[in-house]
């Protein structure tokens, strides 16, 4: 019988879905993903999670809970580190334990450690462990791993070519995904699970596009560029996502093609409080149009939407004016 594996559409799903899916399918498993976040998903999560947790974790709880009764295993890896000498966030380190302790009625959890702190090569061994509950055939695992890596590479290339994850997941060639279609370009900087979850962020990408502006995100910036700009920090940032955000934000400030930056953070997010501060201070010094949004379950939708619209108007006006002089 085919093993069914559920992947919650949350947290680093937005970076690793192609890799994980290809790997598990290569082993003959059937992969189920939860649907987009909804109010019901959030409410489920709120009921299970401590109040103090950040919105993305609460939403992730909701996605995990939505898989109960539908799959044989839920894939909730402990993402300790996805790059040498870097971490994600303490909550990622404790996520499987939090889930196990707070969510009842779970099927099996595949909660292997993904820890590339020492070296990236360790990924193979760690994914082999993820396969162990249902496949122990080394040849098959090696082949699936190879395919998964290739798929991940293809996905990353598509991101760097200007696509956003939702488009890059598929095979479609998307027009307009690339910057340049419109007159103005707004950079969206934030954790992937905030900027790509349109429920969490009140559809911000669509709103920017409807204002006839291009959207670029930190994930569209090639790694070496991120490295170069993040390298100007006095100390290496040890958060993979934070480092990408700071590096790309600094690059955007330096890039005349970018007309404004929107920084999206979660209420009470630890890493954002630090990296957001670095970004905001630099934006102020360079005079880059900058909007900082904080998302939480209580934020009034109307207020945030008004602020986004006002900011987009301001960006358009400002760049229009600058063409005069």
């Amino acid at each position: 019988m085919t093993v069914k594996i559920g992947i919650p559409r949350s947290l680093l799903f937005y970076y690793y879905y192609p890799l994980w899916k290809t790997f598990f399918e290569g082993l003959g498993a059937e992969v189920t993903v939860t649907g987009p976040s909804t109010k019901a998903v959030l409410e489920e999560g709120l009921g299970l999670c401590v109040d103090e947790a950040c919105l993305p974790v609460k939403v992730a709880f909701g996605h995990v809970a939505a898989l109960r009764g539908k799959v044989d295993f839920i894939f909730v890896p402990r993402l300790v580190s996805v790059f040498p000498r870097e971490y994600i966030c303490p909550k990622f380190l404790g996520f499987p334990d939090m889930v196990r302790s707070c969510v009842g009625g779970l099927p099996g959890l595949i909660d292997i450690n993904i820890n590339l702190y020492r070296r990236e090569k360790d990924l193979y061994r760690q994914l082999r462990e993820a396969a162990s509950p249902f496949c122990r055939n080394p040849l098959r695992i090696a082949a699936a791993f190879g395919e998964a890596l290739a798929e991940h590479r293809r996905f990353t290339e598509r991101l760097e070519a200007g696509m956003l994850p939702d488009d890059a997941f598929g095979d479609r060639e998307v027009a307009g995904g690339k910057p340049g279609g419109e007159n103005w370009t707004v950079a969206l900087v934030g954790h992937p699970y905030n900027i790509y979850d349109s429920f969490i962020n009140l559809n911000i990408i669509k709103r920017i596009r409807e204002a006839r502006m291009n959207v670029v995100t930190a994930d569209n910036v090639p790694g070496p560029v991120v490295d170069r700009y993040a390298g100007t920090l006095s100390k290496r940032l040890f958060w993979t996502l934070g480092r990408r955000m700071v590096g790309s934000a600094y690059y955007f400030m330096d890039n005349p093609a970018i007309d404004g930056i929107i920084h999206v953070a979660s209420f009470a997010c630890g890493p954002d409080s630090m990296t957001g501060e670095l970004i905001q201070r630099r934006a102020r010094r360079t005079g880059t149009p900058f909007l900082s949004l904080t998302l939480d379950e209580h934020a009034g939708e109307a207020g945030i939407v008004t602020r986004i619209e006002a900011f987009l108007d301001m960006v358009a006006m400002k760049s229009e004016l600058s063409t005069l002089s």
Binding site: C49, V50, E52, A53, C89, P90, K91, L93, G94, D97, M98, S101, C102, A268, C269, G270, S273
Partner: peptide
């Protein structure tokens, strides 16, 4: 302290304990 990440992890697990 408010927003302390490692302790929020522990806080989530303590009720089960």
């Amino acid at each position: 302290p408010f927003t302390c990440m490692p302790e929020i992890v522990a806080q989530s697990i303590l009720p089960g304990f």
